[in-house]
Design a protein around this nucleic acid. Structure first.
Length: 503
RNA sequence: GGUCCGUUCGUCUAGGGGUUAGGACGCUAGAUUUUCAUUCUAGUAACAGGGGUUCGAUUCCCCUACGGACUACCA
């Protein structure tokens, strides 16, 4: 009987969640749901200096918007709480002590300045300073002084950290669910700080302790953590705990150039890197989010899921439920994936077209209100149905449909060349024809107008193009007679007259 | 520099010892819509390089190159 599946997303609240973090959360969510497990969220705020107010709420709100909220977290099913590491502070020291007592860790009194000095000195000689087995007995540690001396220095209030005593001469053969077997030489590892002089654990300690205490079965995280995997596995071993399974996800890369997509990229790349809008509380700097840019949560989920994973078929459109059903860690890629903003937009178009017209009309309405325009809902729904296929975002609706609401104020120059000498006469005749029509609906108008043209042997182009130009101001837009019906007889005639006057 | 990870069309990817190396986005062209967009059809374009193993490698192995991550008392 295997352990129940419990996975976590463990961001640190140092700012808004970025798109790579969202993908990590998503894969954890999918894996949990697929295996009837639990997806929990833990806030890793052990670095007091980097805490950003609002970041935690942002993370929760973003996950909620995307529909991948955790099953357990702060204020929700707190079976293993608290879920904020700052509130678990009292726990960690005990575990650090446990490692000291078992000989797996030691106190180090080196000051930050002393370490900086060593690093610089090595650098000058073209070497790298590594704090590990080869020099730890030459440094200022409890390994080279007596227990009494150590105790004395600590009680006198001297600053110290607790470092992991990495075992020597071992080849670690580790297994990653995505990458397979990976080997590490312990002699090349450094003695990481587990417990800081400010009384807080480092990520490494807190993470292992909490993953254990919260009964985490699988650690699914970004590839940037791969280098610390041996440390983590060694920590589990030192505690005598069974380690969870590991899966390191490929990184999401910038669309142009090299490197991973980072928070700093902000809006520089022309697309958001955050799920929601964010204003930095200190600098006041604003960054835009997918939600406010008009992306649907379905788009973000779908696109992100396909960055580094696919189900092996040619299907590209997946709902969250389908993803849950089909997700499989074995099919996650090893290589990093560049973020393609164009394809992301295409996904949004797909989901926009899928939306029902009433919802889209509702989303579009505020744009009209802002311009002081009010239209009956039925009409708006009709308009939306005519234009949605040409849009990627609701925010594009206005430019695609302005002529439904206001008469053109100018006429496209190139198209105006089709306005010939005989056009005014034809348009005048067209007005007479339109005036006679009682059943003013698209198909009926079309039939009558076309009849009139064939009867009088008038070329289609001679009428249709100036007609469209009069109503729209350019040669674009949906089926002309649909427009005619929607703006009505009176407005149609008014616009034709205006065109005759001004062209 | 060191450690680790990676490498199929421009991008996301399928595939896997013998295939016309498939799909999607993008781009181009044609059809349809008398418009534009959509849609449909077609086209464009890839196994990083060199060695092995093999009757046969894009697929397996090694090396090289290139790319990336990590290398803090940050996570």
């Amino acid at each position: 009987m295997s352990k129940p599946i419990r996975v976590r997303f463990a961001p640190s609240p140092t700012g808004p969640l970025h798109i790579g973090g969202v993908r990590t959360a998503l894969f954890n969510y999918l894996f949990a749901k697929k295996n009837n497990g639990v997806f929990y969220l833990r806030i890793e705020d052990t670095d007091q200096n980097r805490f950003v107010p609002g970041a935690e709420a942002y993370i929760l709100e973003a996950l909620e918007w995307l529909g991948i909220s955790p099953d357990e977290t702060i204020g929700k099913n707190e079976k293993f709480g608290p879920y904020r590491q700052s509130e678990r502070k009292h726990l960690y020291k005990e575990y650090a002590d446990q490692l000291i007592n078992s000989g797996n860790a030691y106190y180090a009194f080196d000051t930050a300045e002393a370490l900086d000095f060593h690093r610089k000195q090595h650098e000058e000689q073209g070497k790298t300073f590594i704090y590990n087995w080869h020099n730890r007995e030459k440094l200022d540690t409890s390994l080279v002084i007596s227990t009494e001396e150590t105790a004395k220095r600590i009680t006198y209030g001297e600053d110290y950290v607790i470092r992991f005593k990495t075992p020597v001469n071992e080849t670690l053969q580790l297994h990653d669910l995505i990458r397979g077997d990976i080997k590490f030489e312990t002699n090349l590892l450094d003695d990481k700080v587990l417990f800081k002089s400010d009384g807080m654990p480092t990520y490494h300690l807190a993470n292992i302790v909490d993953d254990h205490l919260m009964e985490t079965s699988h650690v699914i995280r970004g590839e940037e953590w791969l280098p610390s995997m041996p440390l983590h596995v060694l920590l589990y071993r030192s505690f005598g705990w069974e380690a969870p399974e590991f899966a390191h996800l490929p990184l999401i890369l910038k669309p142009v150039g090299n490197g991973k997509l980072s928070k700093r990229d902000g809006d520089k790349l022309g697309f958001p890197v955050f799920p929601l809008d964010w204003t930095d509380p200190i600098s006041g700097e604003k960054s835009s989010g997918y939600r406010e840019k008009g992306f649907f949560p379905e788009t973000v989920i779908n696109f992100l899921a396909l960055l580094g994973w696919n189900d092996g078929t040619e299907q590209e459109l997946f709902s969250l439920a389908e993803l849950v059903d089909k997700f499989d860690l074995n099919r996650v890629h090893k290589a990093g994936a560049k973020f393609d903003p164009e394809k992301n937009k295409w996904f949004n178009h797909q989901y926009l077209v899928q939306q029902n017209d009433a919802n889209l009309a509702k989303a579009f309405a505020p744009f009209l209100t802002e311009k002081g325009i009010s239209v009956p809902e039925v009409i708006l729904i009709k308009i939306v149905s005519l234009i949605k296929e040409r849009a990627h975002f609701v925010s594009e609706f206005w430019d695609l449909s302005d002529f439904f609401f206001v008469a053109p104020s100018s006429y496209d120059e190139k198209a105006s060349k089709n306005w010939k000498e005989e056009t005014p006469v034809l348009m005048q005749e067209l007005i007479s024809v339109l005036e006679e029509i009682t059943d003013f609906t698209s198909l009926n108008i079309e039939t009558i107008v076309k009849d009139w043209m064939t009867k009088n042997e008038i070329g289609m182009g001679k009428v249709m193009q100036p007609f469209r130009l009069s109503l729209v101001g350019a040669l674009k837009g949906p089926h002309l007679f649909d427009i005619v019906e929607l703006i009505g007889k009176e407005e149609t005639i008014k616009r034709i007259e205006k065109a005759i006057d001004s062209l």
